[in-house]
């Protein structure tokens, strides 16, 4: 008899009441990573004249999708990745579809290996991410070459890969903090 009532409803005493405002707050926090990618893509398409703006668009999208796909997949579902990719595609002028495809592939990899990646240290995760960043840039370069029917210099692609790999640690620091605070739906 005691056993029947010994497992009370989980957090029944501490969970706040589900109001419309709280649901909205939770949705906003869960959508924070996708909104971040879209906001950066639109902001970086403005003519600021900063060198490497287009490459940063790609790099930020790759880092964000990779981090959230393995650390909290609920905040970055496949459909959100697709939408983010579409926004980046619309606000950039590279070969169409490459960023979108790269994001979906990197999402698939990170989502599939999320348990392994969570156990690995930061450096190992960064190394694996680097390999995929280089592969995605190489794919983009190959498509541009195919479209131009000429062998173009791979230097811009290498720069893009280097920039993507380079901004990963600082973005990870931001996301780790965000996962605990502003992008945490449980804190709503």
């Amino acid at each position: 008899m005691v056993a029947e009532n010994s497992t009370p409803h989980l957090h029944s005493a501490v969970e706040p009441r589900q109001t419309f405002r709280r649901a909205l707050d939770m949705a906003a926090r869960a959508a924070m990573p996708s909104l971040f990618v879209m906001f950066c893509a639109i902001l970086l398409s403005a003519p600021f004249g900063i060198p490497g703006q287009a490459q940063l668009q790609f790099g930020i999208a790759m880092c964000t999708v990779w981090f959230w796909a393995y650390s909290r997949p609920r905040s970055m579902p496949a459909l959100a990745v697709f939408l983010c990719g579409l926004v980046v595609e619309i606000f950039s002028f590279g070969p169409p579809g490459t960023v979108l495809l790269s994001l979906l592939v990197i999402y698939g990899v990170a989502h599939h290996w999320r348990y392994g990646l969570s156990r690995l240290g930061f450096i190992a995760g960064w190394l694996i991410f680097s390999i995929f960043a280089v592969l995605a840039s190489f794919f983009q370069w190959a498509l541009v070459c195919l479209h131009a029917v000429a062998l173009l210099s791979p230097a811009p692609g290498l720069f893009q890969a280097a920039l993507t790999i380079g901004i990963y640690p600082s973005l990870t620091a931001l996301f780790v903090w965000g996962r605990r605070t502003f992008a945490n739906p449980d804190q709503a």
Binding site: A78, L79, V81, F82, G85, E89, I90, F91, F93, P95, P96, G97, T98, L100, L101, L104, V105, Y107, G108, H111, L143, L146, H147
Partner: peptide, 27 residues
């Protein structure tokens, strides 16, 4: 879901190779 979305992305890549002006028009 993911394979379908990847197929759509591949479709966009092919569209970009074949009908680039259509994509650039949207941009």
């Amino acid at each position: 879901v993911l394979p379908i979305l990847i197929l759509l992305a591949v479709g966009l890549v092919l569209l970009g190779l074949v009908r680039r002006p259509a994509v650039d028009g949207v941009r």
